[in-house]
Design a protein around this nucleic acid. Sequence first.
DNA 1: CCTAGAACCTGCGAGC
DNA 2: TGCTCGCAGGTTCTAG
Length: 286
Amino acid sequence: MPELPEVEIVRRGLERWVAQRTVADAEVLHPRAVRRHLAGADDFAHRLKGHRIGTPSRRGKYLWLPLADTGQAVLAHLGMSGQLLVQPQTAPDEKHLRVRVRFADGLGTELRFVDQRTFGGLSLHDTSADGLPDVVAHIARDPLDELFDDEVFHRALRRKRTTIKRALLDQSLISGVGNIYADEALWRARLHYDRPTATFTRPRTLTLLGHVRDVMNAALAVGGTSFDSLYVNVNGESGYFDRSLDAYGREGLPCRHCGTPMRRRPWMNRSSYYCPRCQRPPRVSS
DNA sequence: CCTAGAACCTGCGAGC
DNA sequence: TGCTCGCAGGTTCTAG
């Protein structure tokens, strides 16, 4: 569910409300939430106990909390419906509460991982010298990372025999882009989602990257995109970017470039929204 | 090695 | 009222 802007909003909330606090104990209420921690739920909880949490980091849709003096970090992925919430200890348990982390201080709040569909999860991993968890190493840098290399991305696009939206969602090429921001960036760039990447010129790639960055920065500025209560920040508040979406979810509504009714097409078990006039399909369609 | 599609889950709204 | 179907911000496994 959450893409880069939403995950970054969560990271900022953790930086403010959780960083520098010491874990009193952790409680796993659903084993599937820690399935990527191969040593199991008991091991996960035990290893958090007594350690101080450092400054949260993020790459793409992954975020992690370093555990001071351990060489490890708690890696979190929100999947389609995951939430990290900082709640009063007195608040009733959420229906889909999966993991609870209590702190050894008097602030009266705890960290909760809540996840309806359990596609997300938490796990512990060794970190390299630059603080990156080992399992995140194969994920590409995201477009808001100042070390993201546009030229490397362009050459990777040209090598692939695939189509542009699939490439935007490929986290080994560029991370952080999901179904919403892919459709938004393609609409802004007036590109059809099925355009073969092998035909992309350098200017076309750079223009598209510019639109990806613009739409993500605009979403970040208003707290991300929330259609319902499933995406919220650590305090349970929604973002406002749903009001500014130009493509996603606008089937039948007039294109904000040309007025033509927008279309929705089934695409990889989900949907693609596009303008049939501004975003013409490639001549040779697979 | 590469790519396309299904699988993994739970809940909600639409339609019958 | 209650059933079935389609759909949902993602990743990962499998088949070809």
